Structure formats: C-alpha cells, structure tokens
Amino acid sequence: EMFYGFEKTFKTMNELEQSIKEYIHCYNHDRIKTVLKNHTPIEYRNMVLNKAVQ
C-alpha cells in the first residue's frame, strides 16, 4: 500500500526498509478498526489472548 506509486522516492534500500517498518508499526499499533470493536490490531489481539488465559 505505502510503496505503490512511490517507488522512486526512496533513495536507498535502508530508507525503504525504515519506511516499511514504520508503516507496519502504524498499521498494527495506531490504526483503529471498527470490525475489531474500535481497537487497534495489537489491542484486540491482547484483549482476546487475555480472555483466553482467564
């Protein structure tokens, strides 16, 4: 998603790699989804795992 159309904006592979890591972190930690009961994927995962342990 974040890469398509912007291929030529990254000057080095390290720059591209860092951008991908930042995107993945944002995708998992900052993006709220209504299908996940208004939680981020990480919050929802932790919530489900905590309920399974109890």
Rank of each mutant, 00 (worst) to 15 (best):
I42S: 04
L49F: 14
H39E: 06
I32K: 01
K11Q: 02
Y23K: 03
N28T: 14
L36N: 01
H29M: 08
K8D: 14
R31N: 02
E1W: 12
M13Y: 11
N14G: 09
F10T: 01
P41V: 00
I32H: 00
K11P: 03
I20M: 05
C26F: 13
L36I: 04
H29K: 07
M47T: 05
T12L: 02
N28H: 05
F10N: 00
E17H: 08
M47N: 03
R31D: 02
R31V: 04
H39N: 06
S19M: 11
Y44R: 05
Y23H: 07
D30N: 13
N46H: 07
N14Y: 10
C26G: 11
E7W: 04
T34E: 05
F6V: 06
Y4S: 15
E22T: 14
Y4D: 07
V48R: 03
C26A: 15
E43F: 00
E7T: 08
N38H: 07
G5W: 04
F3P: 05
N50M: 03
K37T: 15
F10M: 05
M2I: 15
Y27P: 03
M13H: 10
V35M: 01
H25Q: 02
K21A: 10
Y23R: 03
T12E: 00
K8P: 14
R45G: 09
V35K: 02
I32R: 00
I20L: 06
P41Q: 00
T9E: 09
L49M: 12
K11W: 12
Q18G: 08
N50C: 04
I20S: 07
F3H: 11
E7N: 02
Y44K: 07
E22A: 12
K8E: 15
N50L: 06
I24Q: 05
Y4K: 09
Y4T: 12
Y23A: 10
R31C: 01
K33Y: 10
T12F: 07
N28W: 01
H39F: 11
M2Q: 13
F3D: 04
N28L: 09
F10G: 04
I20G: 09
N38W: 04
E17Q: 09
E1M: 11
L49A: 11
M47E: 04
Q18C: 04
L36K: 01
K11L: 06
K11G: 03
K11N: 05
K37Q: 14
N28G: 13
M2W: 09
P41R: 00
E17A: 13
T40F: 00
T40A: 01
T34F: 05
E1S: 11
S19E: 12
E15F: 13
E1Q: 11
T40H: 01
E17C: 13
K33G: 12
H29T: 15
E17S: 08
Y23G: 03
N46M: 07
S19L: 13
Y44E: 01
S19I: 15
E43T: 02
N28F: 03
I42R: 08
D30A: 14
M47W: 11
K21I: 14
E1R: 09
E1P: 13
K21M: 08
K11V: 02
E17T: 14
E15Q: 07
H25P: 02
N38T: 11
M47S: 05
L16W: 10
K8R: 15
F10A: 02
T9V: 09
L16R: 04
K21W: 11
K21V: 14
L16D: 05
Y27N: 02
E17G: 14
K21Y: 08
M13I: 13
